[in-house]
Design a protein around this nucleic acid. Sequence first.
DNA 1: TCCATGACGGACCGATCGGTCCGAAATATG
DNA 2: CATATTTCGGACCGATCGGTCCGTCATGGA
Lengths: 185, 185
Amino acid sequence: MARPEDPTARERILDAAHPLFYERGIRAVGMAEVVAAAGTGKQALYRHFPGKDELVLAYLERFAELLDASTARTLDGLEGADGLRALIRLVERRVGARGYAGCPFRNYLREMRDPRDRPGRFALRQVRALRRLVERYAAEAGVADPGALAEEVWLIVEGVYAGAPYPERRAMAAAAVGRVDALLI
Amino acid sequence: MARPEDPTARERILDAAHPLFYERGIRAVGMAEVVAAAGTGKQALYRHFPGKDELVLAYLERFAELLDASTARTLDGLEGADGLRALIRLVERRVGARGYAGCPFRNYLREMRDPRDRPGRFALRQVRALRRLVERYAAEAGVADPGALAEEVWLIVEGVYAGAPYPERRAMAAAAVGRVDALLI
DNA sequence: TCCATGACGGACCGATCGGTCCGAAATATG
DNA sequence: CATATTTCGGACCGATCGGTCCGTCATGGA
């Protein structure tokens, strides 16, 4: 080979695509811009990713790994009401972080109006995995109607994510923590 | 004139555009498709609307008139806690309706990732008008912290709208009614 | 030193979209 | 019937995007 094969090329591309896709949206960012930001050639990008869908899927998957790991760390060992309390605080912390631009999976689903492509199916799976987590904790919480509790907590979680783009997102997240705590008294 | 001026042409175009834009989204529907559905010519469309943005704005404005009128009818004469209770039930009724595809203003804002164009500003104004209504009712409700009550109700409203695309939207809306009622006991 | 390998950057292609223009048809007027 | 005017449908234009292709150049081994 003329140049040493760069095993980090794929990661470099994803590193470059990540902030572009997250901050400006998938549709607004063209492949040319990703290439320019990655400092690589178009050929290299299309060798690692057959098309834009695959690049978007990889972006979402890497995002999911990060979020899932952080979620697992935060909720480790918790169950029932404690799990729900910790979960809503985790969501609050995320939404309140500087530069937060919404849940990437919900962003993709809304930007594309319920896509059935692979990135869309993956994003939907991520959302529903969080919902199942809420249902599991609700089932362990020892309340009379776990299904109703899960529905109420989920409603609040969705409300926080929906409010993430607005200036009052921190107030909404704080209200969410208060509501979940009140539910679990 | 060769043919009689059709005063309803503008309405016919909007009638045709409405279900297309609402069910499939703004980006996914091209002007050619609107023309075909309206049964008119492209010239006629561009005579009534200088560009797609103006057509979209007119679509949102007409939608807003419909929703605002229905809202005013439903909430007529109510105030304070009664207003909030009636409002969340109105949202529940809307989200539960057959063929409901989400709040058109939130749909536009998400599909376009916070647009600053005229349709985007109008959509944001509609959303914030509903929020101000919640704040007004909360202020009249005679609670210790009206701001916190408004935040909590708003969180629930946003949660219902965010859950509108999911199959469990009716359960979420029902949970929302229960939560607001519980807040106001 | 020379050459083979492969990456880089950009030109290029086809499709799509918003928006404009033009020929044809249809109608009102003399 | 003839003509002027207006409308309709579609061809057309320019821009943009995803994706491919190619000329050039850097690099490392024989």
